[in-house]
């Protein structure tokens, strides 16, 4: 089953074209890595998929389970199972983590036509998911990400993902700001969530993350286009040769 089909996607921000014709197909159960140098358009792609304001889609379409995502609000995408793990998770003083988790889960459940979980079932569920990312229960009662370390913030993102069980997860630079121990915990959490019904797109600058979460496919994004696609060995190649070679690659290579 095709989870996501991106066809000839062009997107601009403040009139400047950042995505210049992206084509990408992700099937159910697949993990794709999108790599590329700074300024290639990686973050724009993740923001456009999640529906952040400020981007104009000038051409192309994004089909998620066959439905066009472009006309949907961010919350409608989330309720349908699209999840963005943020590169920089925001701090929200005054909103406790447990409140956020509950509100998010209930929003998804409501869309699915399910009742809200009662307090006890909810807590049992959250606790089981917290084990996955080795988070202490005290984090539930703290304000969302406030005063969290870089690693704690990223674990919190994966906790939200584990709870919401999305069909499509976009992990935006999940490895940034993580030391090796935190990277291992986060990766183990993500790997535990790999499933034949769940697809993932990992957006990353560095190959390092891919040692922990091994992708089925690797794509190289450069100057708003996917210039090369391959399997996990492509990432190794990038590690050896860096990104400099892609600037010399002819237009239209790859994908």
């Amino acid at each position: 089953m095709k989870m996501l089909e991106i066809k000839n996607l062009h997107a601009t921000i403040d009139g400047k074209e950042i995505l210049k014709g992206i084509d990408l197909t992700v099937n159910a159960g697949e993990v794709h890595a999108i790599m590329g140098p700074n300024g290639a358009g990686k973050s724009t792609l993740s923001n456009v998929l999640a529906g952040r304001d400020g981007y104009e889609i000038t051409q192309g379409e994004i089909l998620y389970k066959g439905e066009n995502l472009i006309d949907l609000e961010p919350e409608e995408r989330a309720q349908r199972g699209v999840f963005l793990a943020f590169q920089y998770p925001v701090e929200i003083p005054g909103v406790s983590n447990i409140y956020l988790l509950k509100a998010a889960l209930n929003a998804v459940r409501k869309y699915q036509g399910l009742d809200e979980l009662d307090a006890i079932d909810f807590l049992t569920l959250v606790r089981s998911k917290m084990e996955l990312v080795k988070m202490d229960e005290q984090f539930l009662h703290r304000s969302v990400n406030e005063g969290f370390s870089g690693g704690e913030k990223k674990r919190n993102e994966i906790l939200q993902m584990a709870l919401l069980e999305p069909a499509l997860a976009i992990l935006d630079e999940t490895d940034s700001g993580l030391d090796i121990d935190a990277l291992r915990i986060v990766s183990e959490g993500v790997n535990a969530l790999r499933d034949t019904d769940r697809s993932m797109i990992m957006i990353t600058h560095y190959q390092r993350l891919l040692d922990y979460i091994v992708p089925d496919y690797v794509h190289v994004l450069s100057n708003g286009r996917i210039v090369k696609s391959g399997d996990k060995d492509l990432a190794k190649e990038l590690e050896r040769s860096g990104y400099s070679w892609i600037h010399d690659a002819p237009e239209g290579v790859g994908a």
Partner: peptide, 10 residues
């Protein structure tokens, strides 16, 4: 945006 990306309506 963060809250909306978690499914909360605006």
């Amino acid at each position: 945006f963060f809250l909306r990306a978690r499914g909360l309506d605006e």
